[in-house]
Design a protein around this nucleic acid. Sequence first.
DNA 1: ACAGGCACCAAAAACGTTTACGGAACCGTC
DNA 2: GACGGTTCCGTAAACGTTTTTGGTGCCTGT
Lengths: 341, 341
Amino acid sequence: MKGIRRLAQDLNISIGTVSRALNGRTDVSEDTRRRVLEAAAAMGYVPNQAGRSLRQGNTNAIGFMIELGADINSNSDTFFMGVFDGVQSVLTRHHLDLVALPCPADEDPSAYLQRMIGRRLVDGLIISATHRKDARIDLLTKARIPFIALGRSMTPGDYPWIDLDFDGVARRGIDRLVAAGHSRIAAAVPSNDINLGFVFLDSYKAALKRHGLPLDPSLIIRVPSSEVGGYQLGHDLLTMKDRPTAIILNYELLALGLYRQLAEAGLQAGRDLAIIGFRDNPVSRFMSPRLTCFRLSLRDLGVALGESLLASMPAYADAYPLGMVQRVWPMELIPGESDLV
Amino acid sequence: MKGIRRLAQDLNISIGTVSRALNGRTDVSEDTRRRVLEAAAAMGYVPNQAGRSLRQGNTNAIGFMIELGADINSNSDTFFMGVFDGVQSVLTRHHLDLVALPCPADEDPSAYLQRMIGRRLVDGLIISATHRKDARIDLLTKARIPFIALGRSMTPGDYPWIDLDFDGVARRGIDRLVAAGHSRIAAAVPSNDINLGFVFLDSYKAALKRHGLPLDPSLIIRVPSSEVGGYQLGHDLLTMKDRPTAIILNYELLALGLYRQLAEAGLQAGRDLAIIGFRDNPVSRFMSPRLTCFRLSLRDLGVALGESLLASMPAYADAYPLGMVQRVWPMELIPGESDLV
DNA sequence: ACAGGCACCAAAAACGTTTACGGAACCGTC
DNA sequence: GACGGTTCCGTAAACGTTTTTGGTGCCTGT
């Protein structure tokens, strides 16, 4: 005899009553509820999730899909740890658990997601590293699984998303560099079709136009989102015949490789090349010269993701009357020394 | 009508037969099996995990618990992503899925684990950031949940673990520094009771004794495992009256803060202070001067964790006849420029 | 023609919960 | 004292699978 049956037997009570007592129903006397709770705690009883799920048709868990294959992910898990924490803090208020679903590097993300959806092991999903055309979005809407995307996408249809302010990063970065007198400003964009690259690039182009600067395609440099990509970027920059005087990056670890490449050529950020990096993190905070970059609170972002997801789930929507969240997440510029001329 | 029932109805066949066909049982004709598989693929049928779990008593999922509260985790760039990938590659061979379970920073890890165990949402577990006395180990053995610890512990009892070679790191680090002529060698150890700190410290002491060097307690510096801890460490070092000439670190991001602190004092690693760092990673690889540190393959470590865990699960043990794995994971020294005198 | 074996499949039980339903006991009211 | 209402609890069905059991039809060998 196991589980709730055991508990009921010990207390000489029916399993239905035990269940009601544990789930906070009203039609159970305070006395028996107390006895049930005590006995449950004593024997360390936790309801079997499979039984619950089967009956209730939900799982009380939210999934956070991360793609191990995407270089932008596999290179920085300081990012997700912070976000997880924020999401968790929201979910636990509703007795929901967070499970991270790491999609294997060698598996197609959509296929992986479909498996997870089919298995029904989560009630809702957060997806990240959204691509310009992302099949996962169709999948989720068709399956009617509540979800929110970290990163918007060009995939048609209305769905909730929160995206870092890549537009603002590019715009304010260019403004700042132009104000400092730069006119040949390069941009590093990711070499894959992750959507943030397009947003960033569009904003870069618009900013140049606004300042009356010509658009030189050779200044748009595509590199993998990794520290090695930054190193390669440095090489590309140094071997150009008409070298730019400034560059803005859109991934946090690019600066690392770029600094190194410059150092090897006897050059230095902020003196020989103005650099505006991307996300403030432990690394950029301790680089010399200090990287000018943008800050956001990972935990707050996680909280927003959690709340926005719950807002789209009927069972929790009344606690979060946010509607369909489509929100650009602001980032604050942290001046460093890397963009001084 | 949903799920397997729907499928059976469409095919004019009993649900039992459908189930057997899908699960590769022999007592079903090749013809019907083909029809079932086709129909299943056509309607995108995936068995409901709750139903399966309830019936079979397992979940076909393995959990990987990470503590968001532990600084060593929330800071650890790239570590888990790499390990996840390795674990996944093993698990998918057996149609198992990996779910990462992030324990909220403000929740007790044991309580969190107990909830997860009770819910029975995974068949086996990998725990990390093992503490010197870790209640989770008792919990898991009592509940008879197969598990493996990333990091050994002083908790009594026999259980599988894989631990990075902190002993070897300290030993070889000291040997190298002594060979280079150093005699006042400091060690940075974590300020919490995570077990690796004790292993590291013991090995440090033993190595000093072996070389006939005195043990100066003031050279054992306890700092949080973070880049900020490294900065603080640098401060502690610089304000000592009898400053050591070398130091070995046992967390990868410590070097970052330490470099910064040195730079601010006009000092440099490898010239004014010999530094041997810990784990080779994108950051240390691109620091200037290049950090002398130790390399391991995260993916291989993940593979080993996955295989060793399966070896302890009756259903999979025959594929991995490893017995109870208790293994020190070797790390290879990568010479850099930070420990030149 | 018949026993026995084989290949295939239908039926039903079981897993651990939640919850709709109904019933027993008690209370107060006319 | 009958009756409606309330409070509490037991009973049983239901969720979607897997697996056991048993049965049907066919083949084979005598």
